[in-house]
Protein backbone atom coordinates (compact mmCIF):
# COMPACT_ATOMS: atom_id res chain seq x y z
CA UNK A 1 0.00 0.00 0.00
CA UNK A 2 1.37 3.41 -0.87
CA UNK A 3 1.68 6.21 1.65
CA UNK A 4 -1.10 8.09 -0.10
CA UNK A 5 -3.50 5.20 0.20
CA UNK A 6 -2.67 4.87 3.84
CA UNK A 7 -3.34 8.55 4.39
CA UNK A 8 -6.61 8.31 2.53
CA UNK A 9 -7.71 5.44 4.68
CA UNK A 10 -6.78 7.35 7.79
CA UNK A 11 -8.78 10.39 6.81
CA UNK A 12 -11.73 8.63 5.21
CA UNK A 13 -14.87 8.68 7.35
CA UNK A 14 -15.60 5.29 8.85
CA UNK A 15 -18.94 4.28 7.45
CA UNK A 16 -20.74 1.49 9.16
CA UNK A 17 -22.09 -1.41 7.18
CA UNK A 18 -25.71 -2.42 7.49
CA UNK A 19 -25.78 -5.77 9.33
CA UNK A 20 -28.37 -7.08 6.87
CA UNK A 21 -27.27 -6.07 3.38
CA UNK A 22 -23.65 -5.24 4.26
CA UNK A 23 -23.80 -2.01 2.31
CA UNK A 24 -22.62 1.24 3.75
CA UNK A 25 -25.20 3.13 5.78
CA UNK A 26 -25.25 6.59 4.31
CA UNK A 27 -28.62 8.05 5.13
CA UNK A 28 -30.43 8.12 8.43
CA UNK A 29 -33.45 5.80 8.23
CA UNK A 30 -36.82 7.42 8.66
CA UNK A 31 -38.96 4.42 9.64
CA UNK A 32 -39.98 4.37 13.31
CA UNK A 33 -39.40 1.33 15.51
CA UNK A 34 -42.28 -0.09 17.56
CA UNK A 35 -39.92 -0.89 20.45
CA UNK A 36 -39.11 0.95 23.67
CA UNK A 37 -36.17 -0.93 25.13
CA UNK A 38 -32.89 0.80 24.22
CA UNK A 39 -31.02 -2.52 23.63
CA UNK A 40 -33.00 -3.83 20.68
CA UNK A 41 -33.56 -0.28 19.46
CA UNK A 42 -29.83 0.21 19.22
CA UNK A 43 -29.44 -2.99 17.21
CA UNK A 44 -32.20 -2.12 14.77
CA UNK A 45 -31.07 1.45 14.29
CA UNK A 46 -27.86 0.12 12.74
CA UNK A 47 -29.88 -1.12 9.76
CA UNK A 48 -29.73 0.98 6.63
CA UNK A 49 -32.82 2.90 5.53
CA UNK A 50 -33.76 0.39 2.84
CA UNK A 51 -33.62 -2.63 5.10
CA UNK A 52 -35.33 -0.86 7.95
CA UNK A 53 -38.28 0.27 5.91
CA UNK A 54 -38.59 -3.20 4.40
CA UNK A 55 -39.73 -4.68 7.72
CA UNK A 56 -43.49 -5.39 7.58
CA UNK A 57 -44.27 -4.92 11.27
CA UNK A 58 -47.57 -6.25 12.54
CA UNK A 59 -48.91 -3.14 14.25
CA UNK A 60 -52.63 -3.87 14.36
CA UNK A 61 -53.79 -7.14 15.83
CA UNK A 62 -56.65 -8.81 13.97
CA UNK A 63 -56.81 -12.08 15.90
CA UNK A 64 -56.40 -11.78 19.67
CA UNK A 65 -55.25 -15.39 19.90
CA UNK A 66 -52.44 -15.67 17.39
CA UNK A 67 -51.67 -12.03 16.83
CA UNK A 68 -52.25 -12.09 13.11
CA UNK A 69 -53.05 -8.81 11.47
CA UNK A 70 -56.19 -10.28 9.89
CA UNK A 71 -58.96 -12.45 11.35
CA UNK A 72 -57.92 -16.02 11.15
CA UNK A 73 -59.46 -19.41 10.53
CA UNK A 74 -56.91 -21.56 12.33
CA UNK A 75 -57.69 -20.17 15.75
CA UNK A 76 -61.42 -20.70 15.24
CA UNK A 77 -60.86 -24.27 14.13
CA UNK A 78 -58.73 -25.24 17.09
CA UNK A 79 -60.85 -26.38 20.02
CA UNK A 80 -58.21 -27.18 22.57
CA UNK A 81 -55.71 -24.46 23.05
CA UNK A 82 -52.69 -24.67 25.32
CA UNK A 83 -51.12 -21.33 24.48
CA UNK A 84 -52.80 -18.40 26.12
CA UNK A 85 -51.93 -16.07 23.26
CA UNK A 86 -49.20 -15.47 20.73
CA UNK A 87 -47.81 -12.31 19.22
CA UNK A 88 -45.67 -12.05 16.12
CA UNK A 89 -43.25 -9.35 15.02
CA UNK A 90 -43.67 -9.26 11.26
CA UNK A 91 -45.70 -10.62 8.41
CA UNK A 92 -43.86 -13.46 6.67
CA UNK A 93 -43.34 -11.75 3.31
CA UNK A 94 -40.91 -12.88 0.63
CA UNK A 95 -38.40 -10.39 1.92
CA UNK A 96 -38.68 -11.67 5.48
CA UNK A 97 -38.42 -15.24 4.21
CA UNK A 98 -35.11 -14.30 2.66
CA UNK A 99 -33.86 -12.71 5.88
CA UNK A 100 -34.71 -15.78 7.89
CA UNK A 101 -33.27 -18.14 5.29
CA UNK A 102 -30.02 -16.20 5.30
CA UNK A 103 -29.77 -16.65 9.02
CA UNK A 104 -31.16 -20.14 9.44
CA UNK A 105 -30.02 -21.97 6.35
CA UNK A 106 -27.02 -20.00 5.09
CA UNK A 107 -25.81 -19.46 8.64
CA UNK A 108 -25.39 -15.68 8.45
CA UNK A 109 -25.12 -15.27 12.21
CA UNK A 110 -24.51 -11.56 11.89
CA UNK A 111 -28.29 -11.33 11.43
CA UNK A 112 -28.95 -12.92 14.79
CA UNK A 113 -29.06 -9.73 16.89
CA UNK A 114 -31.29 -8.09 14.30
CA UNK A 115 -33.85 -10.87 14.26
CA UNK A 116 -33.77 -11.13 18.04
CA UNK A 117 -34.26 -7.39 18.38
CA UNK A 118 -37.29 -7.57 16.13
CA UNK A 119 -38.85 -10.02 18.60
CA UNK A 120 -38.77 -7.27 21.20
CA UNK A 121 -41.81 -5.64 19.59
CA UNK A 122 -44.28 -8.51 20.21
CA UNK A 123 -42.72 -9.15 23.61
CA UNK A 124 -43.34 -5.58 24.69
CA UNK A 125 -46.86 -5.78 23.34
CA UNK A 126 -47.52 -8.92 25.38
CA UNK A 127 -46.17 -7.34 28.53
CA UNK A 128 -48.47 -4.35 28.10
CA UNK A 129 -51.52 -6.45 27.19
CA UNK A 130 -51.22 -8.93 30.02
CA UNK A 131 -50.02 -6.58 32.76
CA UNK A 132 -48.36 -9.62 34.40
CA UNK A 133 -44.59 -9.85 34.10
CA UNK A 134 -43.06 -12.99 32.63
CA UNK A 135 -41.22 -15.32 34.96
CA UNK A 136 -39.34 -17.43 32.43
CA UNK A 137 -38.36 -17.68 28.77
CA UNK A 138 -38.03 -20.97 26.91
CA UNK A 139 -37.46 -21.82 23.27
CA UNK A 140 -38.80 -24.43 20.87
CA UNK A 141 -36.04 -27.03 20.59
CA UNK A 142 -34.40 -28.58 17.53
CA UNK A 143 -33.67 -32.24 17.09
CA UNK A 144 -30.10 -33.32 17.78
CA UNK A 145 -29.45 -34.04 14.09
CA UNK A 146 -30.67 -30.65 12.96
CA UNK A 147 -28.73 -28.93 15.72
CA UNK A 148 -25.56 -30.71 14.66
CA UNK A 149 -26.11 -29.77 11.05
CA UNK A 150 -27.00 -26.14 11.69
CA UNK A 151 -24.72 -25.54 14.64
CA UNK A 152 -27.28 -23.42 16.48
CA UNK A 153 -30.92 -23.32 17.48
CA UNK A 154 -32.29 -20.04 16.18
CA UNK A 155 -35.17 -19.92 18.68
CA UNK A 156 -32.82 -20.53 21.59
CA UNK A 157 -30.39 -17.89 20.42
CA UNK A 158 -33.13 -15.31 20.07
CA UNK A 159 -34.61 -16.31 23.44
CA UNK A 160 -31.31 -15.86 25.27
CA UNK A 161 -30.89 -12.41 23.78
CA UNK A 162 -34.39 -11.41 24.85
CA UNK A 163 -33.66 -12.86 28.26
CA UNK A 164 -30.64 -10.62 28.64
CA UNK A 165 -32.42 -7.49 27.45
CA UNK A 166 -35.59 -7.90 29.51
CA UNK A 167 -34.00 -9.68 32.47
CA UNK A 168 -36.30 -12.68 32.29
CA UNK A 169 -34.42 -15.90 33.09
CA UNK A 170 -33.99 -18.34 30.21
CA UNK A 171 -34.47 -22.08 30.86
CA UNK A 172 -34.20 -24.93 28.40
CA UNK A 173 -37.39 -26.77 29.35
CA UNK A 174 -38.15 -28.84 26.27
CA UNK A 175 -36.61 -31.50 24.10
CA UNK A 176 -37.56 -32.87 20.75
CA UNK A 177 -38.12 -36.58 20.83
CA UNK A 178 -38.11 -37.41 17.13
CA UNK A 179 -36.39 -36.03 14.10
CA UNK A 180 -38.85 -34.83 11.45
CA UNK A 181 -38.48 -33.38 8.01
CA UNK A 182 -38.36 -29.61 7.80
CA UNK A 183 -41.74 -28.15 8.70
CA UNK A 184 -41.61 -25.75 5.82
CA UNK A 185 -42.10 -28.60 3.33
CA UNK A 186 -45.36 -29.76 4.81
CA UNK A 187 -49.06 -29.32 4.39
CA UNK A 188 -51.31 -28.31 7.25
CA UNK A 189 -52.73 -31.75 7.88
CA UNK A 190 -49.44 -33.59 7.91
CA UNK A 191 -47.98 -31.00 10.22
CA UNK A 192 -50.72 -31.58 12.74
CA UNK A 193 -50.43 -35.35 12.78
CA UNK A 194 -46.63 -35.40 12.68
CA UNK A 195 -46.33 -33.12 15.65
CA UNK A 196 -48.18 -35.30 18.09
CA UNK A 197 -45.86 -36.33 20.89
CA UNK A 198 -42.91 -34.65 19.24
CA UNK A 199 -41.91 -32.63 22.29
CA UNK A 200 -41.26 -33.58 25.84
CA UNK A 201 -40.78 -31.39 28.88
CA UNK A 202 -37.48 -31.85 30.70
CA UNK A 203 -37.72 -33.09 34.31
CA UNK A 204 -36.83 -29.63 35.56
CA UNK A 205 -40.21 -28.32 34.39
CA UNK A 206 -42.05 -30.31 37.03
CA UNK A 207 -40.08 -28.64 39.80
CA UNK A 208 -40.90 -25.05 38.80
CA UNK A 209 -42.90 -23.36 41.52
CA UNK A 210 -43.72 -19.87 42.71
CA UNK A 211 -44.48 -18.89 46.29
CA UNK A 212 -48.07 -19.69 47.28
CA UNK A 213 -48.45 -21.71 44.07
CA UNK A 214 -49.23 -18.71 41.87
CA UNK A 215 -49.38 -19.43 38.13
CA UNK A 216 -46.04 -19.12 36.34
CA UNK A 217 -45.96 -16.95 33.22
CA UNK A 218 -43.78 -18.59 30.60
CA UNK A 219 -42.76 -17.04 27.31
CA UNK A 220 -42.08 -19.50 24.49
CA UNK A 221 -39.96 -18.32 21.55
CA UNK A 222 -40.03 -19.62 18.00
CA UNK A 223 -39.26 -18.25 14.55
CA UNK A 224 -42.32 -18.75 12.35
CA UNK A 225 -46.00 -19.16 13.19
CA UNK A 226 -47.77 -20.97 10.38
CA UNK A 227 -50.63 -22.92 11.91
CA UNK A 228 -49.57 -22.48 15.51
CA UNK A 229 -49.40 -26.24 15.99
CA UNK A 230 -45.72 -26.40 16.91
CA UNK A 231 -46.01 -23.90 19.69
CA UNK A 232 -49.31 -25.40 20.81
CA UNK A 233 -47.73 -28.85 21.03
CA UNK A 234 -44.85 -27.43 23.06
CA UNK A 235 -47.25 -25.72 25.41
CA UNK A 236 -49.17 -28.95 25.76
CA UNK A 237 -46.02 -30.84 26.76
CA UNK A 238 -45.07 -28.16 29.25
CA UNK A 239 -48.48 -27.91 30.87
CA UNK A 240 -48.85 -31.64 31.11
CA UNK A 241 -45.66 -31.68 33.09
CA UNK A 242 -46.50 -28.62 35.17
CA UNK A 243 -50.14 -27.39 35.10
CA UNK A 244 -49.27 -24.14 36.86
CA UNK A 245 -47.62 -22.82 33.71
CA UNK A 246 -49.29 -20.09 31.65
CA UNK A 247 -47.69 -20.21 28.24
CA UNK A 248 -47.55 -17.27 25.85
CA UNK A 249 -45.88 -17.41 22.46
CA UNK A 250 -43.67 -14.79 20.92
CA UNK A 251 -42.74 -15.42 17.32
CA UNK A 252 -40.72 -13.66 14.75
CA UNK A 253 -43.05 -13.98 11.78
CA UNK A 254 -46.70 -14.80 11.10
CA UNK A 255 -47.31 -16.42 7.75
Amino acid sequence: MSALEWLHRLLHPQLEACPRCEREVRTAPAAALPIRHPGPRAVLSRLCGDCRSAVPWILAIGCPVCGRSARCQDCLRRRVRHVERSRCAVRYTEEMKEWLAQYKYSGAERLEPVLAAMLAAPLERLIVERAVPFDLIAAVPLSAERLDERGFNQAERMATRLSRWYRIPYRPLLQRVRHTEKMSFKSRRSRLTDLRGLFEALPETRELRKPDDAPISLLLVDDVYTTGSTINECAFALRRSNPRLDVCGVLWARS
Binding site: E109, R110, L147, D148, E149, R150, G151, F152, N153
Partner: peptide, 8 residues
Protein backbone atom coordinates in the same frame (compact mmCIF):
# COMPACT_ATOMS: atom_id res chain seq x y z
CA UNK B 1 -14.07 -14.40 10.78
CA UNK B 2 -16.92 -14.37 13.24
CA UNK B 3 -16.68 -16.56 16.29
CA UNK B 4 -19.88 -18.08 17.51
CA UNK B 5 -20.97 -20.86 19.79
CA UNK B 6 -21.26 -24.00 17.73
CA UNK B 7 -23.50 -26.90 18.58
CA UNK B 8 -21.81 -29.30 16.18
Amino acid sequence: MRRTACAS
